[in-house]
Amino acid sequence: MTTQTVSPPDTIRFLEEVSAATAGVSRLEMCIQCGTCGGSCPSSSDMDHTPRMLFAMIRAGMREEALRSNTPWICVSCYHCTVRCPQGVHIADVMYTLKGMAIRAKLYQDSTAPDFSKTFVDMVEEYGRSYEFGLATRHYLKHFPLRLPSMTPMGLGMLSKKRMDISPRRIEGIEQLTAILSRAKELEAA
């Protein structure tokens, strides 16, 4: 009798890739498919796949489908799933990982969220601080021009109450920060 050997490399590779790209120890391989995460999620009704299903897809090596899913983009990082998961899977952080991988593979369906993150990061890299006014104007003009009229009272309120700075502040050590971030980017690419 011969034992059939199923070669796992492709499927395992994707799971490992996701784990390796996650900040802490993801524990993704420990998922027991109990569904607690989806049942705890405030925004699961807007998701293509529940977190549980998404993790099953990752385990099955369904790379493209997983990276095309809107699920990580709908995740609001509330960590309800994370504190309830019986296996201690770092679910919210895995969602961040999948967003990054989807951006690099250009597999996201809607560019609003990736653009917002990129614009935010551009400002932080430029000034060392976030810059709400610049971020809001650039982002809304590009993605929500039709929303602007209904947002005007809010924007005016924020300005008149001095809750939004018109000009950005730059940290003193911006060159130091730039050096740190360029080295970090090299490490990330390696």
Binding site: P72, G100, S117, V121, V124, L177, L181, K185
Partner: peptide, 25 residues
């Protein structure tokens, strides 16, 4: 002194090491 932005919930979805280096500073 001279702290920088923590990256909010944005930087970490762009790139892991830079996001954590930003906080690391």
């Amino acid at each position: 002194n001279d702290w920088n932005c923590c990256g909010a919930t944005e930087y970490v979805s762009i790139s892991l090491t830079p996001a954590y280096a930003l906080i690391g500073r």
